[in-house]
Design a protein around this nucleic acid. Sequence first.
DNA 1: GTCTATAGGATGATAGAC
DNA 2: GTCTATCATCCTATAGAC
Lengths: 173, 173
Amino acid sequence: MIERKDKILTAALELFANHGYNGVSTNKIAKAAGVSEGLIFRHFKNKQGLLDAILGQAFEKAAVLYAHIITEQDPKQVLYKTITLPFSVEKSEYYFWKLQFKLKWELEISGKEKMQPLLDKLNWAFGELGYTHPREEAELLQHLTESISSGILKDGMETQQHLKEFLLAKYKV
Amino acid sequence: MIERKDKILTAALELFANHGYNGVSTNKIAKAAGVSEGLIFRHFKNKQGLLDAILGQAFEKAAVLYAHIITEQDPKQVLYKTITLPFSVEKSEYYFWKLQFKLKWELEISGKEKMQPLLDKLNWAFGELGYTHPREEAELLQHLTESISSGILKDGMETQQHLKEFLLAKYKV
DNA sequence: GTCTATAGGATGATAGAC
DNA sequence: GTCTATCATCCTATAGAC
């Protein structure tokens, strides 16, 4: 039995991911979830509380993905996993992922702190591999995966697939 | 004498760039411009019309910047101008630039077509310079400038400055 | 061109019954 | 937990006077 609270969360996630926070009313969310509007406020206090609940879920999902890279001990594997990460996101987590990018611009929620450990790990990996400017290489690769992710979300994974192969060859991993 | 129509455009640009299209009401725009709300609808028909007018201005500004690169005949200079472009945007055009990124996500206005001639030019330049995969190199560099632009808009130009030097050295331009 | 006033509807949020 | 009814506020847009 699917709880109504979860139906609200699922409907809100999809709507927020597709139309942004300010682009979706609680009325629309209630209708999409097949639930009365008042119930949203019972469960989440207000609209912002609903968003926070979804963001909490997103944070957990992201932490799992990042842990795979941060705990990796082989520097070449760190690069490999970083490059392939945008291409390995599950269909079921697609909306969580899109929401991150949407809110980063709409509400200027940066999520920069969450990326710092990843940047540090890349820095370490490039150093281990003998690159002369590991810090800059790390920032560059992070910028690349960021923009490739954006490309996947906007135009589909097929349009970026060839860049994965190209990057893996370029970094020899 | 500054026309009231321009005051509306200026105020709306700043507000849209900072809070997004759905995050700003015509009431707020009117107050920021020191103008009656009704005047907005006289001049621009509706809120969307106001946005379209601003987007028209933004398009013109962008076309000028891109023309500098597309008309360039020296392949090395094409790379140089592409890399330095995000760092050469005028303070006065900052809001236009930020608005592009905001709307790309909020309203899913891609602006992809506008970038195609730039991508073709980069493709040509990398080919001229003897790169074995000019198409992929072009897409990679475009992704990089896209993400560096994003970084400048979010965290300031200082935070990305060292990447400019690093990229110029990397591409030997 | 510009303002004031206002219509008509949507929005976030609450109260009370079941 | 859930729904219905409702409220005060805000929103886009229009009408009419100056």
